[in-house]
Design a protein around this nucleic acid. Structure first.
Lengths: 236, 236
DNA sequence: CGGGCCAATCTTGTTCAACAACTTTGGTGA
DNA sequence: TCACCAAAGTTGTTGAACAAGATTGGCCCG
């Protein structure tokens, strides 16, 4: 067990994803793009055939999606595309409200953490100037992941990452990412500045404000999506 | 094993666990009891034969154990019993420190939550009087789960539950549960009282104190375990 | 005509055997 | 001694098969 040299075999970064991972990524993308609507049943034989994999491998993919809460598994009944409901939006934001502000209040940010935050802020601002609001959203997610990273808990990082995937699923259906992300360019910069100044409490307060505001936006976004979905439900 | 006729009685509470779940529970128990030591390789054919299940089902069990961080899966190499290292203890307590105090500070506790906390406190005290320190530990875990439950985020509840499983894995190897759990009987009662009095900040502070103290205990417990494990490693 | 029971049918849960792809091992020759 | 290569072992994935639970549709009875 002591031998730890993994440098020789294929550089860890290029490791090939398993068939199950590939399939789960494909299904996730289909859900995100709206090709698979919430509530759709993912019958095993049919789905496996469509993806060109076996039932057993598909089940591995399902398990990955299950831990990310993208599907619902009912024993002996099957697997369904999970509907990210209003309850899920609340679920996600309650968790974020409990975690993110507490971290900046509880754990001191070191130089490396601060630099990571700054980098996300600057990239987001650059993307904003270029009008690339999708990228702004990505950098925004990265900013908040970097905040969680301050706690130094890999498990917590992974948990937060799953939350952001679900959130993205809700946001990505929306038409106007600028409306969603523009307001927070400055606020993230402010949070980073407050942290660098060592004013943790103020940063936590600003973060709480951000999350509550973002939650409100997400809720209205969700309502919007529901309405559109209902009007649009006639086409195949 | 399974009762013959559970048809009507199957009120979702008694739902039969799948073979994969059963197997994962068995392996988890073997890890906890020390029969499977950290670093042990769980070869597929051998383990499947030992548990009397097929390789495919075993793989399902592995996936469950993987999300709980009880095993390590290296592609094309196999599955190994995960060593809960010092880094894991820090990982777990950092996450708990980030989450638990923040919840009592951020979210108001309603009557139902307060009653749930009281119940765990009282059961723990009763068990303490009876000398059942294992049960005290269980109720202590329940108390903290109840705290997390205040946030009203099912995802967060599940995450915290996984943390507690890992923590239990570290504690259960120890010989003296009274030493571990006695100090916190009174402190949990105090936290509950502070919350009922509406003094959220004081409750959060007390909770932080508890976690830091418990972490110190866990770290020394971990050191103890490592030492014993090294001395004891000769007998089968 | 309506409702409940039951059998046929479909789907999921699980197993088994096989093969491909990757790792490790052990030997051979320069 | 060391690099290289073949052999053996393990994991990754597949397809077929069968058991058990869920669904459907029809039949019988009231």
């Amino acid at each position: 067990m002591g031998s730890e040299h993994r440098g020789l075999a294929g550089t860890a970064l290029t490791r090939t994803p398993s068939a199950g991972e590939t399939a789960s990524a494909r299904i996730r993308e289909e859900i995100r793009s709206g090709r698979l609507l919430p509530g759709t049943k993912l019958a095993e034989v049919e789905t496996a055939a469509r993806l060109g994999i076996s039932r057993n491998t598909l089940r591995e993919a399902f398990r990955l999606l299950d831990t990310q809460k993208l599907i619902t598994h009912i024993p002996n009944r099957g697997v369904f595309v999970r509907d990210q409901t209003l309850a899920d939006v609340l679920d996600i934001y309650r968790a974020r409200l409990a975690i993110e502000p507490a971290i900046v209040r509880t754990f001191p940010a070191n130089g490396k953490s601060l630099r990571a935050l700054d980098e996300h802020v600057q990239r987001a601002q650059a993307a904003g100037r270029g009008g690339d609001w999708i990228e702004v959203g990505t950098q925004n997610a990265g900013f908040h992941s970097a905040i969680v990273h301050i706690a130094g808990s890999p498990t917590l990082d992974a948990f937060h990452s799953d939350l952001m995937v679900r959130l993205r699923l809700i946001f990505d259906v929306l038409s106007d990412p600028e409306y969603l992300h523009r307001p927070y360019l400055d606020q993230n910069a402010e949070i980073a500045a407050l942290l660098r100044a060592g004013n943790a409490d103020a940063a936590a307060a600003s973060l709480t404000g951000y999350l509550e505001s973002s939650q409100a936006l997400a809720l209205s976004a969700y309502a919007e999506r529901s309405r559109e979905g209902r009007e649009d439900s006639s086409d195949s």
